[in-house]
Amino acid sequence: MMTYIIRRLLYAIPILMGVNILTFMLFFVINSPDDMARLNLGAKHVTPEAIEKWKEERGYDKPLLINSQAEGLDRLTDTIFYEKSVKLFMFDFGSSDSGRDIGHDISQRMWPSLAIAIPVLMVGLSINITFALLIVFFRTTYIDLWGVVLCVTMMSISGLFYIIGGQYLAGKLLHLVPISGYDTGFSAIKFLILPVIVGVIGGIGGGTRWYRTLFLEEINKDYVRSARAKGLSESMVMFRHVLQNAMIPILTGVVVVLPLLFMGSLITESFFSIPGLGSYVIDAINMQDFAIVRSMVFLGAVLYVVGLLLTDISYTLVDPRVRLD
């Protein structure tokens, strides 16, 4: 087990290096820092001096890979690649193009993101599983047919509609909760209710339908027949045998996204003006702050790799057939 984890972590290094090099190419090679400066400074007729100044302030004036003017190790370290890309491996995100400390911003902003993402995941999971179980339980009746139709319909509605509709209904017509905004501490709850409800509802269609397929796949297996042959009642068969087996793909599917919850949801956070990492990214995109986007790409990749590892480990916990070594 331990050797497996270590090996997987070692595997992660080339992957993160790949991500790192890819973003480096995208941000510094395909487009030069000059281009970024020009885009940021806006006007078409910027002076070369202004561009140089902009680059210098942000440390983009260094050579890309090798600094031929520096001495010793500095030849390699006093470069954009080292400063901006290699340092990401030490989780040193540097400062954003507008001069803020990205690492600090991230540590501040991940909590509101989690405050939405975790309840959405948990509530959504339990609701979806319940609905899917109900549908499968009545699989020979019209409930199944109409349940699936309802799921597909809900899936076909754009997520934006749920948000806008939810805001309109709850905020504007009923005046139940604030439409958007955030607060610290417990007073945040009233701001969180609506985004969480909207997030859960938006996921019901797809989730329920997916879990239904998983349950149906299990219910046709031989061991379910053996369980019935024992004389177990249908609900016992469902809960003790089918659910237990179907939970394996469900749980591991959840585990893989767990680390990514930190990243928050772009759309929800921006609609509800919640200062999480999702809206952080959106703001960065809108302000064309490349430093933040780059850091978040790297962070996302790290979290994804962690998610994969956790998934494999969770398999060993829930499925006795899987042993890692």
């Binding site: 061991y223 027949r225 053996s226 042959a229 004389g231 177990l232 045998h241 237990q244 087996n245 394996i248």
Partner: peptide
């Protein structure tokens, strides 16, 4: 259900798949 597995029990052809894989 009381008859099934009580007075009358059944075993199947495929012992490989006839047992719940995640239950001891």
């Amino acid at each position: 259900r009381r008859v099934r597995g009580g007075r009358m029990a059944m075993i199947f052809q495929e012992p490989m798949t006839s047992l719940n894989p995640v239950m001891s």
